[in-house]
Amino acid sequence: MTFELFIFYLFSAVTLFSAVAVVTVRNPIYSALFLILAFFSSAATWVLLEAEFLGVVLVLVYVGAVMVLFLFVIMMLDIQIDTIREGFIRYLPVGILVAVAVAAEMILVVNSEVFNVDIPAPTPLSVNNTEALGEVLYTEYVFPFQIAAVILVVAIISAIVLTLRRRKGVKKQDPSKQVRTRREDRIRMVKMKAEKRQ
């Protein structure tokens, strides 16, 4: 076993273990952390495939941004694990049945001759793959690239439309309103008759 192969098996094992852990651990925080581990070790696999740009992007975007956001959301929401787990045992037999059937079918097909091809030899590139990706992204693939950008715009607009709203009864501070307050807003002059001596 070469060192490279050893590294590959190590990272693959970590990926598989952490992916299983994501869906089995009880605490959602641990679950998210295991997902980070899964992302990180698959990024390492990518680097082994000499696709270092994709590996770096996976760490930067998913681990750095998406998962941090996930953790924020999980910590801010009061998630009742028990209600989420409800019905887990009840649906388990069907779930296992479907999973086993799909896995068996996939294994049968993937083991067929069609997929039994030699691993293609890597094409040596004169430039590093970040540069190579950059060149095709803005030439050959400029149209899909632009559409992907439009999809991100739609995501932003949708997120804002669905979350931005004026809610009533929110105790939010408005400094300019606080500064502009007048005496009449705060105190009320009440005229009362003096109470009679008893």
Partner: peptide, 18 residues
């Protein structure tokens, strides 16, 4: 290309979900 079919579909679907 299948790439554009998929991207167009996602653009349509995301807008529809919202």
């Amino acid at each position: 290309t299948m790439l554009l079919i998929y991207l167009g579909l996602e653009l349509l679907s995301l807008a529809m979900y919202a």
